[in-house]
Every structure is written in C-alpha cells, then in structure tokens.
Design a protein around this nucleic acid. Structure first.
Lengths: 126, 126
DNA sequence: TTTGTTAATGCAACAAAGTTGCGTTATATT
DNA sequence: AATATAACGCAACTTTGTTGCATTAACAAA
C-alpha cells in the first residue's frame, strides 16, 4: 500500500484501537463516529490500516467484520495469528494471546485459519 | 421445532446434501434451485432443517452461510463439532472429521467454537 | 509561502445476502 | 371430504458493505 496520510479520520480511528487487544466492529465504529466521518471513509481507512499491517480483521459470529490491533505485522506479512473470543452475553470481542495447534490434514495445504471461540468473558463469567 | 412436512422443497434440498461431508452455501442453493423454489422458501427450509438437527451451518470466509449434514445431532443438541475447510482455489468447502483441542482460557466459559481452515484442498493440492 | 500533485473525503447510488409480512396453497389429520 | 395450519410465493424491506465521481486537504517541492 502507498503512503498513508495522517488525516483526522486516521488519527481518530487509530485512537479507538489504542487500548489493548479489544476488537471493534466496523458497525460499531460507524455508529460511534458516523457523524464525524462518512461510513465510506471509515471503511476505507480500516481497509488501509489493515493493508499496512496496523490492524487485522476477522468475522464475528454474525458475519460482521471486526478489527483489532496487530502485533508485529507489516504490509507484507500478517504474522499475528491467534483465536478470537466473542462473549455471547455482553458481545465483547477480543484477541486471545495463545497459540492453537491445528490438526494434521493429509493432502491439503493450510494457508489461513481462523478460530472464533464463543462463550462468557471474564466479566460475564460468574 | 414443530412438525416438518415432507414437501417438495424439503425433499429436493435434503437430496442436495445426500452425498457426504460437502458443504453448500445458501447462495449456491439459491442459484441452483432458485427457479424451482423461491429464495425465501430455501432459507426457511434450511433454517428448519438446522433446528431439527439434520443440517448444521457455519460462516465461510466471506461471511456467507454454509450448510452441511449433521452427524448424530438432534433438535436439542448439536454435538457434531468439527472444523471446516474452504479451498481458496476451487472454493469447495467441507467438514473435517477431526477433533481440535482448544487452548485453556482461564476465567471464561467456552460454549461454541468455530474453526475455519483455508488453503488448498486435495483436488487442488499438487 | 505558495503551488501542484494526488491521496483522502463526502455523497449518493448501488449491491448482495438475508428477512419480514401477508395472502395463498398444499400437507396431513380427523 | 372437510378442516387446521405448516409451508409457500411474492414483494418489499433491512443491513452491511462497495463504487463512481466531484471536491477537499495533505504534504512535498519550488
């Protein structure tokens, strides 16, 4: 991806992801920032930040697109692979900093994998 | 779920899943059967078959809904948990009859998990 | 500081997947 | 055969996300 300009939208969006490993859906960002920026802009900035290795995206349980900060990724390589956890009670989604060993699958080449775990998060877990 | 009547649509749709562990997307079914049945009917029959434990559904890489036959499930319990494999070359999706051990996650309760593996299937793998 | 290039933006219109309401049809029970 | 109601078709709608294009604003160079 080409040069990225430090526009207001980039600044504000990046700031949304400044805290830790919590993921935010594009939908939520539009609800939250949609009066400040057009939704097209929000989608495009997220796209670009993902291409640049700043964010990574994945699909939540309803097929909504979620974004979270990347760790150690570049525009050439997304090496930040991990499962995501979506709380069925409060809806919160975050990145799990653990490694998952995939099963052996003969005669197939694994290129990408995504694991979404659903249940109750720390806060909702009694 | 209530009684299910053996209508033409149910019969034809069930027949589509008669062969093995291949998954079919709702979109593909509509493209294929959309002249015979209204898409609403197709969505509703798939829904019902899933509720009855005959089919299970999951989301593919683009957020499309895919369906495949269940093994040993009832309307009360979906016990047929396994990863799915989507070929990035030919697009085929199928169920992997393997068990995946999830990581330990303290203070959370895992209720559902879905693992989508992408890569090259047996046919596309050279 | 001004100028010029072009990335980034806003807007409106669109696209695709799936859902809803409702009047009609057909399955299966009596 | 009559009846109750599940299933259906149709049209209109919803939601998430995308595209085209004219306008604006970063930022580098003069």
């Amino acid at each position: 991806m080409g040069v990225i300009r430090k526009t207001k939208a980039v600044e504000v969006l990046l700031n949304e992801f400044s805290t830790g490993s919590v993921a935010i859906s594009a939908k939520a960002l539009i609800e939250q920032l949609g009066e400040m920026f057009n939704k097209t802009t929000i989608y495009r900035v997220l796209d670009k930040l993902e291409d640049d290795g700043v964010l990574h995206s994945f699909l939540g349980k309803d097929g909504l697109k979620w974004y979270a900060k990347c760790n150690g990724c570049t525009s050439k390589e997304h090496k930040d692979v991990h499962p995501h956890f979506q709380c069925l009670q409060c809806g919160k989604v975050d990145c799990l900093p653990v490694h998952v060993s995939l099963p052996e699958i003969p005669n197939r080449k694994i290129e990408i994998s995504q694991l979404l775990i659903q249940g109750k998060c720390e806060a909702c877990f009694v």
